[in-house]
Every structure is written in structure tokens, then in C-alpha cells.
Amino acid sequence: MTTPAVEATGLVKRFGDVRAVDGVDLTIAPGQVFGVLGPNGAGKTTTLRMLATLLSIDAGSARVLGVDVARRPHVVRQLIGVTGQYASVDEKLTARENLRLFGRLQGLSRSASAARADDLLERFALTADAARPLEQYSGGMRRRLDLAASLITSPPLVFLDEPTTGLDPRTRGQMWDTIRELVRSGSTVVLTTQYLDEADQLASRIAVIDRGRKVAEGTPGELKRLVGASSLHVELRDAARAPEAAGIVERVLGEQPSLSPEASRVVASLPDANRAGDVLIALREAGLDLASASIAEPTLDEVFLALTGQPTQGEAADDQEVA
């Protein structure tokens, strides 16, 4: 049996009276991307920081590749790379100076750390900007450098805390490619995210965290089945005919759709995207005039609604995480 990359039981972290993490169990098999999904303040970052020796563990225990985190933090630190939510690089140094410093700190000789820095700059497409002060770096470049700094010793386990929060879609895609590449080269990646699509794209297993507890765990497919996949939204020009449209949708999809409060909009869960066409054709044949039609992917809010029976707190889920 292979040793799990991470094995945590009953992890607890208290901040004053608040139990930020309240008994989380995790078993993460090596060689995969494991996603920890949850809204702001759910306890994802705190969980990750405990596993990465950045925070003490108040109760429960954790092992990284079989090594106890609380008892042997120094050994665990040799096995992991950590990329935080805020760039954990020195703003006052250049990219090359940062990488060399971290290499030296981890016992590489002057020449070895210089060579390693150049390797990583090349791999993360930062060579051209290696001598620029970090103040001039874009968010995406900073994240790439941050990730590069975590990989100096090629650690078998890499923790990424919200690696793409605040990045534009193109840079986000590049970061995803880098993470996939990392796993192909044999590392295990544990990442936190508040985006379901990110977890879906990258992770082979996802744990959903809410209010310090794990509320679900499974493959992306299993989780999406919990939510009911995509949904079809159609809006009618004549609100009075909405019930008639709802009847047609139910006949085609075999499931009762919901009507919006103002009754001009019909929303139906759509397990198979191909059926959307059938619904639209049936509506046109019935002579119903549509104002708009769209298919929406399940959102994190819907996952939460399905898993916890309550929506995520506030509208913060799409903003930058602050906790």
C-alpha cells in the first residue's frame, strides 16, 4: 500500500472562540491534484496552513508522506512546497535574486542555486524579466515566480492556496497548464479554490469545506451529479404563456422546471446538454416567442445549496478571499 501524501484526522484550529477548522479528515493519494473547495472563510486556507507547518494544530493529527506534521515540522518542510495566497516572495529583490536566495537557504551551493534559478526562470517564462524589480511585475508573473520558488528542491508535495484568484482568464489557463505539468512530473498538488470550474478542470478529487467542516468529498463528476449539472434558462416575451412553456419543458426533459417570481422565466435542470435543442424546438413548434435562452453551468453557490441547504454567505464568493 502506498503512503498517502496527506493523512489528516480530526484537524481543529481555534481562533479565540471561533473554530475556524472543526474536525476535518483528509486522505490524499499521491500523484494527483486534490482540490479543497469552499467559500470565503470556510477554513480551506487554515487547513492548508496547518498541513504546511505554518499554523499549529490545536487538535487532531496530520501526516505528510507518513511524517507527523506537529512532531517533525523540519522534516515535513523538506517534503513540501508552499505557495500562499499572497505572493510569498521578497518584493524588494528581483526574480532571480529571490530564487537564488531560496536555493541558498535550502542548502544549494552558490553555483547550484544560480543554475537552478535560471532553470526555473526559463521554465516559468520569466527569463526576460529576471532582473526587474518585482514592483513592476503583473499578478500573473508574481504567481509564476511564487510557484517557481516552491519548486526549487522539486518537493514531492506542493500546496497551492488559491493559485488563480485575481488572475485574468488567459493567465489562469497558463497557471492550470503549469499545475498539470507539475503532476505529470510526479508531484502531488493540493490546491484550495473557490471556483468549481477550477476544481473541475484540475482536480481528480475534491473535498468541499464549509464552516470549518468537510461537507462532501468525491470526484468532480460525483459532486456535479449532486448539483444536477447545467441548467437551461428560457425567458418568454409573453409572461402569461410561461406555464404552458413549463409544461412543454417538463414533457421533453421529464422533470418539472421552476418558474421565476415574475413568471416570465423557466429554469430547468439539464443533465444532458444535447436535450437543450429538443426543448427549444418544441417551444418554437408550440409558437412560444422567446426573449432569451441560455445554458448555465452549475455554480459554487448551487453546490453549496445542494450540500448544505444554505447559500454561501453574502455575494463574496467571486471576490478575492480576505480571510
Binding site: 504546511a52 507547518t53 505554518l54 513540501i80 508552499v82 500562499g84 510569498s88 531560496f102 535550502q106
Partner: peptide
Amino acid sequence: EKGVFDRFTSLPI
């Protein structure tokens, strides 16, 4: 208070 100290903390130093 800056991120770089998180890095120092997480390194085996």
C-alpha cells in the same frame, strides 16, 4: 507581515 516571511517559515531552515 509580508508574504515572504510565510516562505521563510515554510522552508526547512
